[in-house]
């Protein structure tokens, strides 16, 4: 059977989001005969981005241009993509699972009357693999229709190496993006969050496993052992008000890569991992031996942090 897949490129401030290239690798693994990348926006950015995509991937690119595609909106994306793919019967539409991707993908699928399978991180014998329960269980999911929309989990595929040879042509087409219910008003930047992450050699980071804000002194004491350290936190700890959002590490917080990252009572949700997985040494302390954090840690300690950290501090002070 002849198969066609589309990859929807996402971008911000005229730059292709790196997750787009990961979605391209995913689409390659699907083994389809024909691939097309779609990129939506305004001129001249769309043309530049379309060329970059074609050069880097060797895949044909269609750039869709409409005045109201200057800012992302789900409404405009859904209507434009539907028109662009009309008359074709793609096996899959591959979309990065980013804040924009999961915003429009499920609605697009529903409008196309096909299933949407989200946050896919693997492939197995025609099924898509995705995580349940914070990564504790994997589900193999199969669409029962010939077509589906898939969102691709960031970090699950590597961006492809740049292709050699001549780039395929890019096609720029005018689009009609419907925008009747939405008025995009632009971007608000996150407040500056610098609490010394960049200078810290060691980041001691705390999760909900700390149990109560009273125990935070343990984290401060542990951090104080190192000459250059900072305290990080999961979103859960910030939501509870135990530490300010400036401490939040992860996809919607700060991304860090210190020489050592000590994760205390952190389960290892994908949104947290994406902000710290490039740390040189990852040490994790968690009572649950199956915690997902242990899959990225090089030093794994199954202990209750409230009893373990005092022993570490004690042993260290005795030695020095």
């Amino acid at each position: 059977m002849y198969t066609h897949v589309y990859i929807i490129a996402l971008h911000a401030q005229g730059k292709i989001a790196p997750e787009t290239y990961e979605a391209v690798s995913f689409a390659r693994d699907l083994g389809a005969e024909k691939k097309t990348i779609l990129v939506l926006g305004t001129l001249p950015q769309v043309e530049h981005m379309a060329r970059e995509l074609a050069e880097r991937t060797g895949i044909a690119v269609t750039g869709a241009v409409a005045e109201n595609l200057g800012h992302y909106s789900a409404e405009a994306y859904k209507s434009t993509i539907r028109t662009l793919i009309e008359g074709t019967s793609p096996f899959a539409l591959c979309i990065p699972h980013t804040a924009a991707g999961y915003d429009f993908a499920p609605g697009l699928a529903t409008a196309l009357e096909v299933p949407c399978i989200t946050a896919v991180e693997g492939l197995s014998e025609g099924s898509f693999i995705r995580s349940l329960f914070g990564g504790k269980i994997r589900a193999h999911v199969k669409p029962s229709t010939p077509s589906c929309v898939v969102t691709v989990l960031p970090g699950a595929w590597q961006a492809p190496a740049a292709t050699q040879g001549s780039a395929p042509d890019v096609t720029i087409v005018p689009a009609e993006a419907r925008q009747e219910t939405t008025v995009p008003l632009g971007l608000k930047r996150a407040a500056a969050r610098d609490i010394g992450f960049a200078d810290a050699e060691v980041i001691v980071s705390v999760g909900r496993g700390i149990g109560s804000p009273q125990n935070l002194s343990l984290i401060r004491d542990l951090a104080a052992l190192f000459p250059k350290s900072a305290i990080g936190a999961t979103r859960a700890v910030c939501d509870l008000g135990w530490l300010g959002y400036r401490h939040q590490i992860g996809s919607t917080g700060t991304t860090v890569s210190p020489r050592a990252y000590i994760a205390c009572g952190i389960s290892g949700a994908i949104q947290h991992l994406s902000g710290m997985r490039n740390s040189q040494v990852i040490i994790a302390i968690n009572t649950d031996p199956h915690a997902a954090i242990f899959r990225v840690a090089s030093c794994c300690i199954v202990e209750d942090l409230t009893t373990f950290i005092p022993v570490v501090i004690d042993e260290y002070t005795k030695r020095s």
Binding site: I117, C300, I301
Partner: peptide, 20 residues
């Protein structure tokens, strides 16, 4: 019936890390 779970599994047990 538009999408079905065909199998459930636990993630690979093998951690690259060293358990103390």
């Amino acid at each position: 019936e538009t999408q079905l779970i065909t199998a459930l599994s636990y993630p690979d047990a093998g951690s690259p890390g060293n358990f103390l």
